[in-house]
């Protein structure tokens, strides 16, 4: 009993108080910062990019494909590519994930999330999500689990992962969606009562990521049903996820 209390006291309070302004370590690779003037068109970055996220003339990075591996930055001799530690990388529109030179942090924050009144009204105070890993590598899954730990404590905002799609207000999809998971995913979607939202979480879910070329995928689901929110990362950082969802349901 006393040992338990002692352990508890040693731990203190672990939760991040102000999640919307939580600091991030400088080493984190978040929103890219591109500079066309520095680019000399050597194409070295194109050769090392594993997902085809990069384009030249003008420089752009598609965060829906990007694994944030940093290989392009490491290989660039002229400093045309850099990554900031800005982590709020969620958007309601797929195109917004394609970042060019003028996409600053402020600019991205302004356009990223289109707030819908009805979403705010229905889900603003409570959002229960069913997570479906459709061939996710367990990277995003571990980070989504971390969202509910004592540090990030997502539950305090009324956002939780639930066991049954019947209890859920929406799906969070991770992974590139394998053929073998296509049926279960769709089934799960149909079992979720309306109104519901669909969130794509991580490069694999958004674009197939490093698995884009695989013949074992079946991504038809994404053509059939509307997607409400895209959250970039590989894997998605818990702060990215929580802030993305909060921005979407609270419009802040």
């Amino acid at each position: 009993m006393f040992d338990t209390l002692k352990s508890r006291i040693y731990q203190g309070n672990q939760f991040i108080k102000d999640i919307k302004n939580a600091p991030m370590r400088e080493q984190f690779r978040g929103l890219p910062k591109l500079c066309n003037a520095n680019c000399n068109n050597c194409k070295d970055c194109l050769n090392v990019c594993p997902t085809g996220a990069l384009k030249l003339n003008p420089l752009s990075i598609d965060m829906g494909k990007c694994t944030f591996c940093g290989a392009c930055k490491n290989v660039c001799k002229t400093g045309a590519i850099d990554f900031t530690n800005f982590y709020k990388l969620s958007t309601t529109k797929r195109e917004n994930l394609i970042v060019t030179e003028d996409m600053t942090q402020e600019e991205f924050s302004k356009i990223a999330i289109e707030v819908r009144k009805e979403i705010k009204r229905v889900f603003g105070k409570s959002l229960k999500l069913r997570q479906v890993s459709a061939a996710g590598c367990n990277g995003c899954e571990m980070e989504l689990n971390a969202c509910s730990n004592v540090n990030f404590d997502m539950g305090r905002f009324g956002i939780d992962f639930v066991a049954s799609p019947r209890h859920a207000d929406g799906l969070v999809i991770t992974g590139p969606i394998s053929k073998n998971m296509a049926y279960a995913l769709e089934d799960c979607y149909k079992s979720t009562p309306d109104p519901k939202i669909v969130v794509l979480c991580g490069a694999c879910a958004i674009s197939g990521g490093v698995f884009q070329q695989s013949s074992e995928l079946n991504r038809e689901f994404l053509e059939k049903y509307p997607i409400d929110l895209y959250i970039a990362g590989c894997p998605v950082h818990p702060l990215t996820f929580i802030n993305g969802i909060l921005g979407f349901i609270q419009g802040k």
Binding site: M142, V210, E216
Partner: peptide
């Protein structure tokens, strides 16, 4: 099992990268 099959071995032959190796199993990067 088999739901997670992404054809990694074939992809590794066609386009081997460190990033692919990291995604074979995201808890053993």
């Amino acid at each position: 099992l088999g739901y997670q099959n992404r054809g990694v071995e074939e992809l590794m032959v066609k386009h081997p990268t460190n990033q692919m190796a990291e995604s074979i199993c995201g808890d053993s990067v």
